[in-house]
């Protein structure tokens, strides 16, 4: 396990601490960006280039733009950042809990940090992974899954249209 990988995994966990410690939604979305960016790096580090690319393009590109739009809907005059007192307290207590868990699991293990070192069972770094071809199975043997996904996405379209319909009712009216 290289230092880079350790740093990326720590970034992933730290990003989610940032989301979970209840800051304003803007900062939460920023934490999620950090998680998906570092997660993408983790996948790339384990030689999963295609899945990493999917995560980067689809997740960061699609999902977070949508969340940025909706953060505008939840706008507040005084947003709470990570330096706000309650948020900082929550985040630090999460970090302490995580460190205790880490010490419990890995306190007596030699993780062999260093360049070129691979944590047990992950194989040679020059080995080719079959995941690019594996995703291609979606077009042959995994067809049922793709059809179900498409059906689910179509259903979601109807669901969202039905949920957000009816501007004339509720508190926000055109009158």
């Amino acid at each position: 396990m290289s230092y880079t990988m350790a740093l990326l995994l720590m970034g992933m966990v730290g990003g989610l601490v940032g989301v979970a410690s209840n800051p304003s939604p803007y900062f939460g979305a920023l934490g999620l960006v950090l998680v998906s960016g570092t997660g993408c790096g983790v996948l790339a580090g384990y030689h999963g280039g295609f899945l990493s690319l999917v995560l980067f393009l689809i997740y960061l590109g699609g999902m977070l733009v949508v969340f940025a739009y909706s953060a505008a809907l939840a706008a507040e005059p005084f947003p709470e950042g990570w330096l706000s007192w309650t948020v900082a307290m929550t985040a630090s207590s999460y970090l302490v809990g995580l460190s205790i868990c880490w010490w419990g699991f890995f306190g007596h293990t030699d993780l062999r940090l260093g360049e070129g070192q691979v944590m047990g069972g992950w194989g040679d770094s020059s080995q080719l992974r079959g995941e690019t071809g594996g995703v291609g199975h979606m077009y042959s043997s995994g067809g049922g899954g793709v059809v179900t996904c498409a059906g689910g996405l179509l259903l979601t379209l109807f669901v969202v249209l039905e949920l957000t319909r009816g501007l004339a009712r509720g508190t926000i009216r055109s009158v």
Binding site: T148, G151, G166, R169
Partner: peptide
Amino acid sequence: LFAWMGLEINTLAILPLMAQHHHP
């Protein structure tokens, strides 16, 4: 994974039925 997909479709499909009348 497929069991989970079924549960998700189930949840998604009932949401508009529940919010049908858009009452608060």
